[in-house]
Amino acid sequence: MTEIRDYVAPRSLADALRVLASGPATVLAGGTDLMPQSRAGRVRFAPTLLNVQGIDELRGVARDPGGVQIGALTTITSLLEDPLIRDRAPVLRTACDHFASSQIRNAATLGGNICNASPAGDTLVPLLVLGASVVLASAGPEGIVKRRLPLAEFLVGPGRTARRTDELLVAVQAPLPPAGWVDRYLKFGARPALDISAIALAVGGTLREGRLEDARIAFGAVAPTAIRASEAERVLSEGPLDRARIDRAVEAADATIRPISDVRASDWYRRELVHNLLRRVLNDVCDA
């Protein structure tokens, strides 16, 4: 383990950002990834450990003009219980329901899951389908500076994000889906609880007159980051949702993904799962 020289637990965002501005720090939120990864030697601590749990302003789900804003410290359990998420963004709720175990959901935060940037991160796939952005804050000469970045641009590689070391992810912002929106989420692993996805997928769109308009498809664990399958989305948006179009969308998705082999699945099997489960999910939307 690396030596941690300073442990800081600020109460305000401004204080936290000042710490980040002053030098390298490891951010601790729920700790459900950081602790096991550091114990296993996969994460090296920076000299400062910045515990952000005391910053209450980073907690909670609220409507905003653009849709919904979710504080980075909102736990997975809070998301699971939030009525707005339940009613307007069920795809995120379903993903939270498949997230690890109750104990871990009570501690793990949305911001932590995003910044961990695992290709298999459970909340990433539904957030991509919702078209979410992240809000990053840093200390500027005139006070707090915030910038917004689409989630797809924030995720750079396995464990890597576009967050600068002086920045803190403070919130997730997502538009709320329009009327007629349908979505599906599917996490595939070896068992129903306490598992890491072999693959995950989510589908969303507005079902209108037999077409899936503004179709969105996202995958987890089949590329270096969670990804949108834009080519498959385009295929779906071009005409009525029928078996032939679904087959073409599945082919297009196959061209997008870049699965690897690891202890959880081989690349071949991951492709087969993407084929079979995307087809199954789209057929289900089609039949609905």
């Binding site: 175990s101 070896a190 068992r191 129903p192 609880a193 306490l194 598992d195």
Partner: peptide
């Protein structure tokens, strides 16, 4: 190493 969990 996957032990059986309660839902299974």
């Amino acid at each position: 190493y996957k032990l059986i969990t309660a839902p299974e």
